[in-house]
Write a protein that binds this DNA or RNA. Sequence first.
DNA 1: CTATGATTAGACCGGTCGTTCTAGGAGGAT
DNA 2: ATCCTCCTAGAACGACCGGTCTAATCATAG
Lengths: 192, 192
Amino acid sequence: MTTDDTRLSARDRLLASADQLFYREGVHTVGIDRIIEHAGVAKATLYNTFGSKDELVRAYLRSRHASTADRITGALQRYRTPRTRLLGVFDALGEIFADPDFHGCAFVSATSEAHGASVEQAAAEYRLWVRALLTELAEQAGARSPKTLAYQLHLLYDGASVSAGMDLDGRAADTARTAATVLLDAALAGPS
Amino acid sequence: MTTDDTRLSARDRLLASADQLFYREGVHTVGIDRIIEHAGVAKATLYNTFGSKDELVRAYLRSRHASTADRITGALQRYRTPRTRLLGVFDALGEIFADPDFHGCAFVSATSEAHGASVEQAAAEYRLWVRALLTELAEQAGARSPKTLAYQLHLLYDGASVSAGMDLDGRAADTARTAATVLLDAALAGPS
DNA sequence: CTATGATTAGACCGGTCGTTCTAGGAGGAT
DNA sequence: ATCCTCCTAGAACGACCGGTCTAATCATAG
């Protein structure tokens, strides 16, 4: 089960192990020794590469941000209209939630566990990316107030992530998509 | 700053200290020593009273559940109509978020930090309570599908909690309430 | 061949963790 | 006054933490 793939550099193996273990068990619970054992790498190499555990956590969160963004933007390319692209965000969420290893947003978890500036900054950057994506899609879909709709959809986005991680109910993304449709339609209609 | 109030029993002082420290800094970060120092109580007393840290965490989460439920149901009594009561949940959330010490849902945080059956059970009970409350209010408000609306509002409830804890934006509860109004109205109208 | 720099395994450090244990003090009931 | 119960302070335990250090190994460039 270790990440012994020698084709990958030590840095990549460490990052892959950190990604798996930190997300699965938490950045606070998983110690340095677990990671180097899983990566098949010496402890000195970790410290030569990343300098500290905190920096490894930063790198882990940056990697999560990048892979999540890729996954979502990649999924959105299947859709041709602004409306389906906006709602497609929640279809992409559904695919992410379907992963049996999914158990909540990595940034929410990391913020709960580790109270440090680096984690908070990485989480803020991720959340700004989500908000910017939703705002852009809301604009293209013709929402009267794109920022307001984006904020509302961001609530559904986070809520679905929490529910998918904590409840024994696989319908979180579907329910969020249904609600998002209602909110979008309301944001398109003229002011009451 | 310690909870030396001798009018309270040792158990209550421990619980009050656990409530403050666990929520403020996390159940994993705060150690036994910090709690007994804050409560002004001997270590043996803690173990005679609760048996283990895990049991203290359970008691802390049960206490959180009870106080949050009291706070919300108490606030709801101000409202006279089913509609305002349902939307009043988000007004109550706004009051909770306004507490400068608020930084996210205690059950989400605890689940992220400690992976144990006791924490998961306490979180599940809390989430079932929220869902039941929203379902009941949705029924009374006349929603066509109370369970569906309750699920949607639960997403907003969790999303608002995440946003209020992580974003530098005090409008989470207001935005959730606005979205909830749209979803409620859509759930009242006849099928399109 | 040799020298350099990266990587290895693993001992080691000081500190913290949850938990147990010892030893004794305070106060009420008999 | 004696007992019993609850409480106190704090030492001690074994385990684990992040981080440093030593020393040996290996690949490659000169």
